[in-house]
Amino acid sequence: MRALTWHGVEDVRVETVPDPVIEAPTDAVVRVTSTAICGSDLHLYKVLGPYLHEGDVLGHEFMGVVEAVGGETGELKVGDRVVVPFNISCGSCWMCERGLFAQCETTQNTEHGKGASLFGYTDMYGAVPGGQSELVRVPQAQFGPVRLPEHGADERFLYLSDILPTAWQGVRWADVPEGGTLAVIGLGPVGQLAVRAARHLGMRVIGVDLVPERLALAAEWGAEVLDVRTDGLDSPVKVGDAVRDLTDGRGAEGTLDAVGMEAHGNPVAAAMISAVGKLPGVVSRPMIEHAAIDRLAALHSSIEAVRRGGTVSVSGVYGGAVDPMPMMDMFDKGLTVRMGQCHVKRWTDELLELVSQDEDVLGLETLATHRVPLEEAPQMYETFQKKEDGCIKVVLRP
């Protein structure tokens, strides 16, 4: 089969690799009809290379048709149309019973001190081959795959794999009441869906970014937008001031960091991250695990922009071990902080019902700006990373 494989920092290639096979009775094999490049894939493209191996298959947002099943996959059958959550969970362990699917104890990576395994996402999360490919082996298929209607555009359902539940969880965890204000820091794909979800739930939304196309799209969906560049918001304090100016001096009830470790705003940290990512794994892994620092402009802006007693919700991926945090301000403001990988299946039922309506209420079918064959994935990784050509979301067709 053809698949997108990792070969080094900013070096991914589409190659022919062996077809996956059933390895356990709870496995299925899915033929991919649509897959996408996620913002967190860009961390693998540059920062998290030390945890990858040459030839690893990337990708964790995918859907398709079941081609083969093991003997213990429950009601799942060949021919079912499914979307597959990015985290691999069993549905029956202590964590899963409590809705903490991203911490599934059956697929937990205890060797690395990490949570549930993820598709296409490094040694730290199980080294499970990903979905930017023609075929995927899906472990824990008795629980994970979400069966879909036979009809309807792929992109109505594709984002149920990751970015839609990630955005939904981020909004829910920000704990903003109907009519209250949510500030979304970062208007990439997750930020865009967070804007739409929050507006659908009756919230006022302030969106912060520095890319004109992203700001314009968020504004189309009802966000009041702040441009980091043209509005002079070159520090978290200034972002906070701008949000307070729009909220009677208090700040937003909740803020959502939809950016993560590679936020703009700290060139020193950016240089450090880039340098560590290019070192041999035996050297760089200990540095990442014990001395790494993230670019924290988005997170610090979220802390600045939230009101006293408010909630900071973090959907962006972080990996630093020594990130400096404004603990005095956080304590003094009495903040609640909620973060972590999305517990995808926790939100599946309500989101599937929402996206299955006749009207595309969240604009899922129009979110993608680029739809290309899988063979063009390497070029699209570069375009997406550099925010060129108005790129907001990329969908690949194997």
Score class of each variant (00 low, 15 high):
L335Y: 04
N266H: 11
D154A: 05
V372C: 05
Q357K: 07
L4Q: 03
G126I: 07
R137P: 00
G191P: 01
H43I: 06
A3P: 01
D349S: 15
V344G: 01
G186Q: 05
G180F: 10
G64Q: 10
G202K: 03
D27F: 07
L215Q: 06
P50M: 09
A291K: 01
H151F: 09
H300L: 15
S34L: 04
Q103Y: 14
H264L: 09
F119M: 08
D80P: 02
R196T: 06
G319H: 12
C93Q: 10
E61A: 05
L354A: 05
E376R: 12
V57C: 05
E220P: 00
L148H: 03
S92P: 00
S34V: 04
G120V: 04
A28P: 02
F119G: 02
V176C: 04
H60L: 11
S89Q: 10
W94H: 14
N109D: 12
E382F: 08
T311Q: 05
M325P: 00
D154Q: 03
R397F: 13
I303T: 03
E178V: 15
G79N: 11
A252I: 06
V146L: 14
R338Y: 05
L233M: 09
F331P: 00
F384M: 13
A141S: 15
T26A: 10
G64M: 10
G340P: 02
V282R: 08
L233S: 07
K387F: 10
L48S: 03
I22P: 01
E111H: 12
P165R: 03
R204C: 04
K387M: 14
L215T: 04
L42C: 03
V205C: 04
P145I: 11
H151A: 14
D358K: 07
Y125Q: 06
A291W: 12
R2E: 15
K238N: 07
M261Q: 08
D257M: 02
V128A: 02
A174C: 03
P286R: 03
R250D: 14
E111W: 11
S235E: 12
F157Y: 15
V83E: 13
K387L: 12
G249C: 09
A198Y: 02
S92D: 14
H300K: 10
